[in-house]
Simulated assay, not measured.
Amino acid sequence: MDTHAGGDVSRIVTAGIDTLPGSTVRQQMEYLRDDADGLRQLLLGEPYGIPEMSVDLLVPATHPEAVAGYIIMEVMGYPIYSGSNTLCTATAVLEMGIVPKQEGLQRFKLEAPAGLVQIEARVRNGVVESVTCEGLPSYIDSYRDTLLVPGIGDVTYSVAYSGGFYALVDAEALGFKLVRDEEAALAACAHKIIEAIQAHRGFSHYTLGDVGPLPFLHFMGPEEPVAQGYVRSRSATYVHPGVICRSTTGTGTSARLALMHHEGRLAPGDKLETVSLRETG
C-alpha cells in the first residue's frame, strides 16, 4: 500500500517476506541491515522505487502491547524511528483492517526498532481522517560546535537525537531562504556538512548505543511569531546521501524542538509549525 505524510511517500509491504530471525523488531531490522540488505536495495531502486521514498515492512509485534511491528528502510539505511513512516504505517494498518477501525478517537501501539510508539487516530464515517504519533525522547548531544567544511568554510551546528541523530544548522547563515528552487543546492550543501561531521566524530545513544553514523541534517529558517507560544518556520530535512525530504519530517521537527527547549525558548504547550519547500508540514 502506498501512503504519504506531508508529501513524503512510504510504501507499506504487508506480505511476501519470510519470517525474519530475531526476538525483537530491532534484531530483525539488524538482520536485514547486516545480512539481507538486498531487499531494501530492490524496493528503493529502479524500477520498483526511488531514493526519495521510504519502505515500511510490517512484521509481527514482539511486544505484547503492540498490534504490529514495522521496519523502516530508506536510502540511508535503516532508521530505528521515523515520524512520517510511523504515521503512514499506522494509517495502513487501519485501512487494511489489521487494526479494526472504531468511529471517533482510538489509540493503539506499534513496535518500531526503537521500541513502542503510541498512536492516536481519528476515524470518521469509516475513513481514517487523521493520525498523530508519540515521538521518541529527544535531547541535545552537542551544542553550537564549529567545523571547517571543505567547499563551504566554518559551519556552526548542533546535534540532536530525536529517533536519529540530526545536525541542526541555520539556513540563513548558509545563504538559503528555503524555497523549492534551492532544493539541489540544499542537498549539495548538506552532503558536504554530513560528510565532514561523519569524518570528524561518531555518536552513541545513551541507552540504545550505536545507531550508526549521523545520517540527517535539518535546515532551520527564521521563526515567525503566529500567536502567544506559537511560531512558524520554514525548514528542510536532508537524508544522506542526496535526498531533501518532501515534508519537514517528524524527527527533524522533534530535533528542532529539543534545541528550542535546550535554549530555554520552549515551554510546555508551546507550538512549532514547520513549513517545507513544498509548503507542507
Rank of each mutant, 00 (worst) to 15 (best):
D8F: 03
D8P: 04
D8N: 15
S10F: 14
R11Q: 09
I12E: 04
A15Y: 13
A15N: 11
A15C: 08
A15H: 14
R26D: 09
Q28A: 11
E30K: 07
R40C: 06
L42H: 12
L43Q: 10
L44C: 07
E46H: 11
I50Q: 10
I50D: 03
P51L: 03
E52P: 00
M53S: 12
S54L: 06
V55T: 15
V55A: 10
D56M: 06
P60L: 09
A61V: 07
H63R: 11
P64V: 08
E65Y: 08
G69A: 09
V75C: 08
M76Q: 15
Y78A: 02
Y81K: 07
N85D: 14
A90L: 05
L94S: 11
M96E: 15
K101Y: 13
R107V: 03
R107P: 00
K109L: 11
A112R: 06
L116C: 04
Q118V: 06
Q118H: 11
R122V: 14
R124S: 10
V131N: 13
C133V: 14
E134M: 11
L136Y: 01
L136M: 15
S138A: 15
I140G: 05
S142W: 01
Y143G: 06
G151I: 02
G151Y: 12
I152L: 14
I152A: 08
I152W: 10
G153H: 02
D154I: 00
D154N: 05
V155P: 02
S158M: 00
V159T: 14
V159Y: 04
S162Q: 06
G163H: 05
F165Y: 15
F165P: 15
Y166W: 12
A167P: 06
D170R: 00
E172M: 11
K177P: 02
R180C: 03
A185W: 00
L186N: 02
A187C: 07
A187Q: 11
C189N: 12
A190I: 05
H191F: 10
K192P: 00
Q198C: 08
S204R: 14
T207Y: 05
T207G: 00
T207P: 00
P213K: 09
F219K: 00
M220Y: 03
M220W: 03
G221F: 08
P222W: 07
P222C: 05
E223R: 12
E223H: 13
A227D: 13
Y230A: 06
R232K: 13
R234N: 13
A236H: 00
T237Q: 11
T237I: 04
Y238W: 08
C245H: 10
R246W: 01
S247K: 03
S254W: 01
S254K: 05
A255Q: 01
H262F: 14
A267F: 06
P268C: 09
D270E: 12
S276F: 08
R278Y: 14
E279T: 04
T280R: 01
